[in-house]
């Protein structure tokens, strides 16, 4: 990959904890935790000192089981929740000089609407199920300041076509669609403003295998065509293998291993990664 170029997104020392912490667990170097949980005070450390870079046009996979902190990380990056501490920089935003987590909520909305797209595992979080599909896609364009109906309708139709939803169904509500189609509408919405970064959170989990394969194919195809940078979260190493150039393995809120996906699959170092890879074979 183009690792010579500078990253499009950099995350440094991202921490997210639920609870106040205590003497036993406040020091990140030697906290006594059961998995990510402090028995003494009940604090949960969902993300601990996460640092990584995402490069232009790259798909960075994040694999881990539920409770590993990968979805918490995604929510933090899309400002769905506040981080406890940490920094994130986006090259297309103020030339990567400003910590996104320190920006006002209005600026964070600007970043969400113009520079990012997100596809949620649960389509209810990403779509208004009772509104039309074209309206769902337009919502993101409206949020980015578009006030031209014809332009939004044209762009929305183009996107629906790209995600293989017949344009004549654009006025139907996602609640009438199958799970796979709902994810396609989410993808179309996420892409509507041509964001340089796409966040994908377990997008195929819960879908039938054949439908999964179709959605993954679509993502792969769009990624090649649009050269969009993606953060791809999954508990399924098979999904990661299919799409990710590089991979981070997360366990109990920490990154335990990272590297080229092929390398990790061939020669896993950490015991947990070895277990994951073996279960894949």
């Amino acid at each position: 990959m183009g690792q010579i170029s500078s990253p499009i997104m950099s995350v440094r020392q991202l921490n997210k904890q639920f609870g106040k912490g205590c003497e036993q667990c406040s020091n990140s170097d030697n906290r006594k935790l059961e998995r990510n949980y402090c028995r003494a005070c009940g604090t949960v450390y969902s993300c601990q000192n996460l640092s990584f870079d995402l490069y232009p046009g790259e798909v960075l996979g994040i694999v881990g089981e539920s409770g590993s902190g990968k979805s918490t990380l995604m929510r933090s990056l899309y400002f769905d929740q506040e981080v406890t501490t940490g920094e994130a920089y986006l090259q297309p935003y103020k030339e990567g000089a400003v910590n996104l987590f320190q920006e006002s909520s209005q600026q964070q909305k600007y970043i969400r609407n113009h520079l990012m797209g997100k596809v949620y595992q649960n389509p209810v979080l990403g779509l208004r199920m009772g509104f039309s599909s074209i309206g769902n896609i337009a919502e993101k364009m409206i949020a980015a300041g578009n006030r031209n109906v014809a332009a939004m309708e044209a762009r929305g139709s183009e996107l629906l076509d790209q995600v293989h939803i017949p344009v004549y169904r654009m006025k139907e509500a996602p609640k009438k669609f199958s799970g796979g189609m709902q994810q396609r509408v989410q993808i179309a919405k996420a892409l509507s403003n041509n964001p340089p970064i796409l966040l994908l959170d377990e997008v195929t989990t819960g879908l039938d295998l054949s439908v999964q394969a179709n959605v993954l194919d679509l993502i792969k195809h769009l990624q090649r065509e649009l050269k969009i940078s993606m953060l791809l979260v999954s508990h399924d190493l098979g999904v990661i293998r299919m799409l990710a150039d590089r991979t981070m393995v997360m366990l109990d809120g920490r990154v335990v291993e990272q590297g080229l996906t092929d390398q990790i699959l061939e020669d896993p170092q950490h015991a947990y990664t070895q277990q994951l890879v073996h279960s894949l074979l």
């Binding site: 909520s105 209005q106 509104f131 039309s132 074209i134 309206g135 337009a138 409206i142 949020a143």
Partner: peptide, 18 residues
């Protein structure tokens, strides 16, 4: 508070679509 009126515009957009 944030002067975020996407919702008002979206409802008009939906009407126009319908």
């Amino acid at each position: 508070g944030e002067k975020d009126y996407s919702g008002a515009w979206l409802m008009l957009f939906e009407q126009i679509m319908k």
